[in-house]
Design a protein around this nucleic acid. Structure first.
Lengths: 241, 241
DNA sequence: ACAAAAGTGTTTCGGATACACCCATGA
DNA sequence: TCATGGGTGTATCCGAAACACTTTTGT
């Protein structure tokens, strides 16, 4: 409480993001995947790591997370939420506090053609990672699995129009277990989060009705969102989806 | 991604803690209270604020939270968990990222006799606070209320031995609504988190059995806990209660 | 016609709730 | 003995789960 400036101690603030999306594997099964970047310098040169960078003092935390995400994937997330602040001594040379975010990308997001040193990995079985990033990925995945149970977050992984089977597949991929189609249908229909359209997806067996996400319903609590002014309490802003 | 050190930008890292405890008011009702400190310097001189201070580069985040807590209340928390990292531009002069923790103190905790500029306040109706601390307190209270619904966190507010009525009162104080004593009893008895003792609390009407918390059961998930070594994944440590 | 996914109906089960009722003590 | 909180029993409700069944398409 006696110091007035921690900068003299050389504490550095970084921002990283765990980005989840979905990919269909050779067997046709959906799986949760995340993009990782290969480090091109020490420490941990050559290892895969979460996309991230240093926080700019003129940049909001969430903006920094979006920026690093855009720099590596070229895409905008459909959902972005702060995960945790990791600041253990020894997690990195020097003292680095990483404000980590987690994000969702809609299914089928592509890396830019010129993306180098970036690749998708199975979120459940990542390769050996730099720093404490494996720990971070595990926690982010836990949060995703947890949150899918009490929020509509799964919609953040789907395109605008989707069938109930699409949505169920997302849940199954995240939870890694099968769900009863009949009961799943009733649950989401009763939740009021879906708007049925008059369009159908054809091509195999009986056509399935296409649904659209009801934006009147919050996708999920994203935590305490930024205040515009320091003093007064502020209600949550709208989710950018 | 081009800079290598944010310290040159003067980003400062602070740690603050929202500490909850219980106090019985004049009507004999339990209420959630939190200690605040009066600021003795600018900015916001004279206003009440959360206890906190600058992070030392040789100090773990959680240690810093415990330290500031001890410095103001002289007591050790029964529960401590990271809440959120607040880093909005404009929340404070200069750029300050505050890693905020929240903590529980056992009922009846006393401030040291020499504590100055520290006082307890009703958590639901705090006074005008410095910085964005009102926003932070509201979020911490939301988290407490939320977590009490799916964890055994309420025990962190009680002493070693307590009656079921004591525990129910804690829930009622946090949730601000009355609970059915009969159903409450069954729920906690079936949860396996309580160990009945052969001691009873006497003094009014029928004596009530005293219970003890079963430490084999996790009090609550505290998030991704510190890793001892940077590389390998580490399972959650034991909660210090 | 048949396979397979889309979609509906129905039964069962378990936990949460409401509330009636008995028990043990202090005053 | 009576008021009061401690503690038990039980009926009811509601949503989740299990699963039989009908519908609609492609092949």
């Amino acid at each position: 409480m006696t110091r007035t400036d921690s900068a003299v101690d050389g504490i550095r603030v970084a921002v990283s993001t765990v980005i989840f999306s979905l990919r269909r594997d050779a067997d046709g099964r959906l799986a949760v995947v995340l993009p990782l970047v290969r480090r091109t310098r020490d420490p941990h040169e050559g290892r895969w790591a979460l996309p991230g960078g240093w926080l700019d003092s003129t940049e909001e935390l969430e903006t920094a997370a979006s920026r690093t995400l855009a720099e590596t994937t070229g895409l905008a997330p459909s959902y972005l939420e702060q995960l945790y602040a990791f600041g253990d001594i020894g997690r990195s040379p020097g003292r680095v506090v990483s404000i980590v975010y987690w994000a969702l990308l809609r299914e089928g997001a592509q890396l830019p053609a010129d993306a180098e040193n970036v690749a998708w990995f199975d979120a459940s079985r990542p390769p050996e990672l730099a720093f404490d990033h494996r720990h971070i990925v595990e926690y982010a995945l836990w949060r995703l699995r947890n949150k899918v149970g009490y929020s509509r977050i799964a919609h953040g992984l789907l395109p605008d129009l989707f069938t109930l089977s699409d949505l169920r597949e997302v849940y199954e991929a995240i939870l890694e277990r099968e769900l009863d189609p009949a009961n799943f249908r009733r649950q989401v229909e009763n939740s009021g989060t879906l708007i049925p359209t008059e369009r159908f997806r054809t091509g195999s067996h009986r056509p399935a009705r296409l649904y659209r996400y009801n934006h009147d319903v919050e996708l999920a609590d994203r935590g305490p969102l930024p205040t515009d002014t320091p003093a007064p309490p502020v209600l949550p802003e709208e989710v950018t989806i």
